[in-house]
């Protein structure tokens, strides 16, 4: 399936489902106290964000950690079998077009060409995960692996209806990563909502985390040892900087939010909502033509449309607050 076709499909399906249906968080072996704390904080941040910002209920969130806690939010020990069982369960519990998000943190490695996430007992390999994800035939699956040496998961997991994000570009980037910390921050705040639509898309969270990683390394005057990548066109080749086309097309349409499309029973407001959508589409189209346009003409037209959009939005707000 081509990226464009998939994007067109997802634009509607995700809109209908409204956002993420299930979340699985896996935090692997820490090894040292500092990583126990970091991975724990990561898991907690993501789970809290899912509940508070995406509107997921207790039953829709599963966190498997190195040590099984007797109390929530950790549901069980993050062994290979437990992870695979959790995925099998999610495949049964979700339906077509549901968005399933799998987020992983820990230490990774690569043996031969097989990427791994270090878990208690046998590691979780790229092959294991790919087989488990095979059960999600109709769902959209987002896999975010923030572990070191996670780059190989892109090739292992790439496919239709998949968004795969890894903290590193290959298995050779073995140092502990910072990407996960910033990705979690993106999910838990509005910082990454760069288009200010009230939703943080997978692409926005990815770009935010990637940029902050670079800034952190630069600030510390250190050589950057992790380079995140994203694949959503299914070709198994990750992209670092997302462009207007190629990888990122789908990731822009999937958001970590349950904010539904605004509707109104008031015919006047409903008409304004239609007008707003028309203006948003016109602005997007204008931006697409920017490179080919005279800059003065572009700016004039942009300002005209943006003023109309602002006025329309203002009218919508006024209509919604009427007694």
């Amino acid at each position: 399936m081509s990226g464009a076709l998939l994007a067109a499909l997802l634009a509607s399906t995700v809109g209908q489902t409204g956002g993420v249906a299930r979340l699985l968080v896996v935090t692997g072996l820490a090894g040292e106290p500092q990583y126990v704390e970091r991975f724990g904080k990561f898991g907690k941040t993501v789970v809290e964000a899912a509940k508070q910002r995406w509107g997921l209920g207790e039953a829709q969130v599963t966190w498997l950690a190195e040590t099984a806690a007797t109390e929530a939010p950790v549901r069980g020990r993050a062994t290979r079998d437990a992870v695979l069982a959790a995925l099998a369960r999610l495949a049964n519990e979700t339906g077509p077009d549901d968005v399933v998000v799998v987020v992983m943190a820990g230490h990774g490695s690569e043996q031969g060409t097989e990427p791994r996430l270090n878990l208690p007992g046998p590691d979780l390999t790229g092959t294991d995960l790919a087989m488990a994800l095979g059960a999600f035939e109709k769902q959209l699956v987002v896999v975010i692996n923030t572990a070191s040496a996670s780059g190989g998961f892109v090739k292992a997991l790439a496919g239709p209806r998949r968004i795969v994000v890894t903290a590193t570009k290959s298995g050779f980037e073995r140092n502990a990563t910072m990407f996960g910390d910033f990705f979690a921050r993106a999910l838990a705040s509005d910082e990454a909502d760069t288009d200010k639509n009230g939703r943080v898309s997978v692409a926005e969270a990815y770009q935010f985390a990637r940029g902050e990683v670079a800034r952190a390394y630069q600030g510390g005057n250190r050589l950057q040892t992790e380079h995140a990548q994203l694949d959503d066109n299914g070709d198994g080749v990750g992209t670092a900087e997302l462009g207007a086309t190629g990888d990122g097309t789908v990731a822009r349409l999937v958001s970590f939010s349950l904010k539904a499309e605004e509707t109104s029973t008031d015919p006047k407001v409903a008409a304004l909502l239609v007008e707003r959508r028309r203006l948003e589409t016109a602005i997007a189209a204008l931006r697409g033509r920017k490179a080919a346009m005279d800059s003065t003409a572009y700016e004039r037209e942009l300002e005209r449309l943006l003023i109309q959009l602002a006025e329309t939005n203002q009218a919508i707000r006024a209509g919604q607050t009427k007694p």
Binding site: I283, E303, L306, I307
Partner: peptide, 22 residues
Amino acid sequence: VLKALEQAPAYERAQTLLLELR
């Protein structure tokens, strides 16, 4: 503010500022 809205047309605070400036 136009630069802000060019990137994020739905940015409500920026929309309000644009109208205010206008």
